[in-house]
Amino acid sequence: MNRIVCVQCPVGCKIKFELVDGKLTKIEGNKCPRGLDYLKDELADPKRIIPTSVRVIDGEYELVSVKTSKPISKKYIPQLMEILKKIKINAPVKVGDVVLKNFMNTNVDIIATRSVSKRDVPK
């Protein structure tokens, strides 16, 4: 049997499952319906919240932490990281500012997760 740990709540159910010809034939260990939904999503199109950082121009810090507004398909992660490596935003930045809107038409925004003030003295 295959195994996966559900991350939809703090319980962390250890789900065991069997696939035959790509179809779920046996599932055990999930304590709620969210575990089954999580397993199906992981098998069909796994998604993740992506935390990272982008460069800040004239900020008190050179980077600002950002994350996806909701999970994105794992297949998009390499493209997202390439785009974010090239982005530079001007200070000030506030928590919740949208750094990149509607990434690849997925309805997922990249948002700032901390504030960065403008630097008082330019370098």
Rank of each mutant, 00 (worst) to 15 (best):
N2H: 15
I4H: 05
V5W: 03
C6K: 01
C6T: 12
Q8I: 08
P10C: 05
P10A: 13
V11G: 03
K14C: 09
K14Q: 12
K16L: 15
L19Q: 06
D21M: 07
L24T: 03
T25C: 03
T25Q: 08
K26I: 12
E28S: 05
E28H: 13
C32R: 05
P33D: 10
L39Y: 06
K40Y: 07
K40R: 03
L43C: 02
D45L: 14
P46E: 04
K47S: 07
K47A: 10
R48D: 11
R48K: 15
I49H: 13
P51F: 06
T52G: 06
T52D: 00
S53N: 09
I57D: 11
I57M: 06
D58S: 11
E60F: 02
L63S: 10
L63Y: 10
S65R: 11
T68F: 02
Y76M: 08
I77E: 13
I77K: 04
P78S: 09
M81N: 10
E82A: 14
L84M: 09
K85E: 11
K88L: 14
I89F: 08
I89T: 01
A91I: 00
V93T: 06
V93S: 02
K94M: 05
K94Y: 08
D97M: 13
V98T: 15
V98P: 13
V99K: 03
N102L: 02
F103A: 03
M104C: 11
R114I: 07
S115V: 07
V116D: 01
D120I: 12
D120N: 14
P122S: 07
K123V: 11
